[in-house]
């Protein structure tokens, strides 16, 4: 029986006077690509960091792999790609991958093989021994994704993984994400690209820290009686603003 990789219950969080997350519930079962969409500043990154235990929540609980977060050991089973690239620029891509592989306790004999696999996936194999300072923005993004994959984790948490990546490579990456899903892995992905949102198995629309709508892409379109996820996004937003105005 497939278990739930992530169970977040009633997660709330505020920065100063601003309520950034308002009682969010999120359940991510095994073998699913879960998309988080919402306007800029909605609280997507904050939710991800709360799930990882890198941000303290005001209330609510998060469990990852049946372990209450924050928990250090569970991190080894999670591949994380931050929204902004956090790479050691003076090191080469291979050295960056090696470092994170070691930190993720990838066995020594498997490490070279994993580096080849992760680099191949993001099409960086020929550039592995170049210093990151000489990388383009898209190359850095791809390297960040490769780092998230280095320990072959069961759960991937990717914060806008395809920003700055060309359409062809983006198709390739999504195909690979689907392949990974088929082996029982799960992914939590944030995105601003609506055709990527369409490719998710399940979507959550967050706005002003509130989970406005959730469901499969098809169900959402049906619920809002529109043809595309983009229209769901816009319509849900307008309805929320109208509600706020009535109050």
């Amino acid at each position: 029986m497939a278990t739930d990789y992530v169970i977040a219950k009633q997660v709330s969080k505020h920065f100063g006077h601003q309520q950034v997350l308002n009682q969010i519930d999120l359940t991510l079962p095994a073998g699913m690509i879960y998309g988080l969409i919402g306007p800029s500043g909605a609280g997507k990154t904050t939710l991800i960091k709360s799930i990882l235990g890198m941000e303290a929540v005001d209330s609510g609980t998060v469990k990852v792999m049946d372990t209450v977060m924050p928990n250090r050991a569970v991190m080894a089973q999670v591949g994380y790609m931050a929204q902004s690239d956090a790479l050691y620029e003076t090191l080469t891509a291979r050295e960056n991958l090696t470092l994170f592989g070691q930190l993720m306790s990838v066995p020594k004999i498997k490490l070279a093989q994993m580096i080849d696999y992760a680099a191949g996936l993001v099409d960086l194999t020929s550039q592995l021994d170049k210093r990151v300072s000489g990388y383009s923005g898209g190359m850095k993004r791809r390297l960040s994704l490769a780092i998230a994959l280095i320990q072959d984790p069961q759960l991937l948490i990717l914060d806008e993984p395809t920003v700055g990546i060309d359409p062809e490579l983006r198709q390739q990456i999504w195909t690979e994400l689907n392949n990974l899903k088929d082996t029982g892995k799960s992914m939590l992905v944030t995105t601003h690209v609506m055709d990527e949102a369409e490719r998710c198995d399940y979507l959550m629309l967050i706005r002003h820290g509130i989970a406005l709508a959730e469901g499969t892409p098809a169900a959402l379109k049906q619920q809002y009686a529109v043809d595309t996820i983009e229209q769901v996004f816009l319509k849900a937003g307008r309805m929320q603003d109208a509600n706020d105005g009535n109050r």
Binding site: M54, M75, A76, A82, S84, A86, L103
Partner: peptide, 14 residues
Amino acid sequence: TTGTLSRLLATPIR
């Protein structure tokens, strides 16, 4: 400031 510290802390390192 480059975020590598919080990236490091997203691994099981103590």
